[in-house]
Design a protein around this nucleic acid. Structure first.
Lengths: 191, 191
DNA sequence: TCAGATATTATGAGCTGGTACTAAAAGCAG
DNA sequence: CTGCTTTTAGTACCAGCTCATAATATCTGA
């Protein structure tokens, strides 16, 4: 068939635009060694908009992405909090949080979720994680809705001992113990 | 002075474009009730580029942000690796990685850096973190250039014991021990 | 081998959202 | 009124397209 060349070109075109979306038809024509008109026909066939539209789409998407990052900084959604006692947060595992090779959620998301929650339950203006002790019990996959529960188990001066358990569908998938150091007062922290 | 009107318009213009960067000169002219030419002169005076350039700038910024996330997924840059022995990676702490309240780097960046590196040194197609044991020794602030070194200390069947130390300017700021479980085996899942 | 389909290239008009430049009109201050 | 700034208007030009129309190249099956 003649159209194999066309199909290959279509794939290459998509690939090139994926890597570098800021290419004009003219540049594409040169790199693919065809005429500009062919590129245009290809774009129409593949439903790829023109450079300006692509650029605009990206710019518009940018804003929501930036907000998504901000939210990622919270690492989970706080749904209940009793200062110095307990806290509960949730986090949905999305496909971009998993390891490509295994499909399993990257461990540091659970760690970050637990760490953030642990810091939140401490009633202190400034607090730092001192020591952590974590155990991954069950692998978590994309789509999981994790629920974390943190409990302050002990408190000694400026040190808070906190136990965090993360569950997915009532199954405990992760467990951590933290020692959080409060820096609230005039007193300095030591390691 | 006559130019007060101009100054007010300039401020409004910047404000409008801040809220909605996707406005053409024509739309701006209408909302500010002046001619298109006035808008152009204002843009030149204020050093504001044309719509297309603004859009492109945002899109490019978006791309680098997205790449930043991708890179965040790597969490550090691998600079040396001897499989099943040692690995070294670096990570620069940027202002967006620190807690607002304290200016101290969020703990899970160090954890993620260490965890990622630990997984990397394990010579296995698929590996998972089983247990982690971390200690934050010194707070880290924005601008720090962290260097992590991971060493496989022991190996028992499918379990790897790994010690990771993170230094900032030769000062040890973080230390972690992981047990990584390899899922490589032929008996387990395949696809 | 040759007609007909498919693929590619060429050509030209028109569009958007501008830049760059020139010039004229409007507004106001002394 | 004379000068000054400010604003508006108009023209030529550009990139990067769309849309339509037509010509050429290439292949394919009967």
């Amino acid at each position: 068939m003649n159209s194999t060349r066309k199909l290959i070109r279509h794939e290459r075109l998509q690939h090139i635009l994926h890597d570098n979306p800021f290419m004009t038809d003219e540049q594409l024509a040169k790199t693919l060694k065809v005429s500009v008109q062919t590129i245009r026909l290809d774009r129409v066939a593949l439903g790829i908009p023109e450079l300006r539209e692509r650029t605009r789409d990206m710019a518009e998407g940018a804003q929501s992405k930036l907000r998504a990052i901000d939210k990622k900084d919270i690492v989970g959604e706080l749904i209940d909090l009793e200062l110095n006692k307990v806290g509960i947060s949730t986090l949905k595992i999305t496909p971009d949080m998993v390891l490509e090779k295994t499909g399993v959620a990257r461990g540091h998301y659970m760690f970050a979720m637990a760490d953030t929650l642990a810091l939140a339950v401490v009633d202190a203006q400034k607090a730092l994680t001192g020591v952590g002790n974590v155990k991954y019990k069950v692998p978590v996959y994309a789509g999981a809705n994790l629920v974390a529960k943190a409990e302050v188990t002990r408190r000694r001066n400026d040190k808070y001992f906190i136990c965090v358990k993360i569950k997915n569908n009532n199954e405990e998938v992760f467990r951590a113990k933290f020692i959080i150091v409060s820096l609230d007062d005039e007193r300095k922290q030591e390691e």
